[in-house]
Design a protein around this nucleic acid. Structure first.
Length: 443
RNA sequence: GGAGGGAUCGGAUAGUGGUUCAUUCCACACGCUUGGAAAGCGUGCGCUGUAAAAGGCUCGGGGGUUCGAAUCCCCCUCCCUCCGCCA
């Protein structure tokens, strides 16, 4: 019988906060709280959070001061003992010890309280990020290509996939439940080809290849900054008795790869391209995209993660560079898309900025998200403790993540490149990998 | 799953209860020197804190014993070597 380990808040505060690393720079909170205030307002968050954090911080600092003074007294006393202390010295030392014990308990309480509030504070959005309440306020940054014209009614990927015998959602529903699917026959070959095409493209651009673990410890997941302590095992799929959480993106096991490291300035930027399955509970999306393989609990993804010097100009420029790689791929696949500049209300907790690529899906008669591209600046690096030595100083690096390709792009290829005779043309860049140039209905 | 051995500030190391509030070397930064560099010399070089100090924390993580812990005790994690199982 497995022993279910208890991961209480205090347990995590000990695991995760021992180096006193937060998500935002605590000095911003102490010296320029108006910056945090504006970030919370722009992100549609409750302002009472700021007041609670400030109160918790001043409580904490007060006790910290008392504890440090007692420790200083204790150190002063015991460092003077060269041999056996006298009775008087002993009793003085014992008094300090007792005082210290009760104060330290209080301090640990205050620290946990502060940390639980601090981890709720999101990254500060870049100045040019549009202010808005949710994804409906995202702005079109650019539009590339044109909607393909059909002189017939285009099918969506499910109908196409069934006719071509390359997708099966029904059987997946029976065996695994809703939000699962099979790629099969030429569909399976196409899926793997798309992944490998994207993966090798980035390898050729100098990225380091990674096939990372698909499960991480709860502590690792916490450090990525998407989920607070109390939610760790419920936000995604997990196996609490093993203290493991399934990754929702390779970012969750690749970005922590350099945790607790001090990198060399000359090694930056470090660029990774990862291939991994992604697992998502999709809790709270009941009723959305229930048809087909668009929103599933499991899919494959090629992702890029980049570590740069801690300079917003450098990391923001890298963000644009990642976006251009994503666009290059979509153009080679012959897909029409819009790049969206995501607004403050749509920005995930660790993000300073984010672009989404929304690709045209003729079967849905709509643009749908296929990629995103984010700069998390030093937000994740602070918890992960990933630094770079600049001169004789250790500074937190900047960390970025961006989708290269996912299974959704395969669906986009099917819907966009369908022909009047029911076949699908394969983009030329994939031919060498697929071994076929089109998919025809089997008789 | 079982048996042993390990983990010390970027790397390598010294350190078995109080001259260790962690040693030395390498790398790195700054300064001196130089026509310029190398070498040499000096200073700094884990985290926090401060205007600068002071102070506090730190020897894989957590807890305990003690006036005092890198050092002793307990629990955990990871790595290495073997045995077992296994795609």
């Amino acid at each position: 019988m497995p022993i279910i380990r208890q991961y209480t808040i205090s347990n995590h505060s000990k695991l995760c906060y021992n180096t006193f690393q937060f998500m935002i720079d605590i000095n911003i909170l102490r010296e320029q709280p108006e910056i945090i205030k504006q970030a919370l307002v722009n992100r549609q968050k409750d302002l009472s959070l700021l007041e609670s954090v400030q109160k918790a911080d001043s409580d904490y600092l007060q006790i910290l001061k008392e504890v440090e003074n007692l420790r200083a007294e204790q150190n002063k006393l015991t460092r003077n003992f060269t041999g056996k202390p006298t009775e008087e010295q002993l009793s003085a030392a014992k008094t300090i010890k007792e005082n210290l014990k009760s104060k330290e308990e209080l301090l640990s309480e205050k620290q946990t309280n502060l940390n639980l509030l601090l981890e709720e504070i999101p990254n500060i959005p870049a100045e040019d990020v549009p202010i808005g309440k949710d994804d409906t306020d995202n702005q079109v940054y650019k539009t590339v290509g044109e909607k393909p014209k059909f002189d017939f009614t285009p099918l969506d990927h499910i109908d196409l996939g069934e006719k071509l015998n390359i997708l099966d959602v029904k059987k997946a529903g029976e065996l695994s439940g809703s939000r699962f699917g099979y790629f099969k026959n030429q569909g399976a070959v196409l899926e793997m080809s798309v992944m490998f095409y994207a993966f090798t493209k980035l390898i050729n651009k100098g990225f380091h290849g990674m096939v990372p673990p698909t499960m991480v410890k709860s502590k690792t997941e916490w450090a990525c900054g998407y989920t607070s302590n109390k939610n760790l095992f419920n936000a995604g799929y997990s196996s609490p008795e093993d203290d493991l959480i399934f990754i929702s993106s390779s970012e969750h096991s690749v970005v922590p790869y350099h945790s607790n490291e001090v990198l060399s300035e000359k090694d930056l930027p470090i660029k990774y391209v990862n291939f991994s399955p992604c697992f998502r509970r999709e809790a709270g999306t009941y009723g959305k995209d229930t048809r087909g393989l668009f929103r599933v609990h499991f899919f494959n993804k090629v992702e890029m993660n980049i570590f740069t010097l801690p300079d917003l100009k450098i990391s923001d420029a890298m963000c644009e560079e990642m976006l251009s790689i994503e666009e290059e791929i979509m153009q080679e696949l012959g897909l029409h898309y819009q790049v969206m500049k995501c607004c403050t209300g749509d920005l995930p907790q660790p993000n300073r900025r984010m672009y989404d690529i929304n690709t045209w899906f003729p079967g849905q008669n709509n643009y749908r998200e296929t990629q995103s591209c984010s700069n998390c600046s030093d937000y994740q690096a602070r918890r992960l403790n990933t630094k770079v030595k600049i001169g004789n100083e250790n500074k937190l690096v900047h960390i970025l993540n961006a989708t290269v390709i996912t299974d959704r792009a395969v669906l986009a290829i099917l819907e966009n490149h369908q022909q009047p005779d029911g076949s699908v043309k394969i983009p030329e860049c994939l031919w060498a990998l697929t071994g076929f140039k089109e998919i025809r209905p089997t008789l």
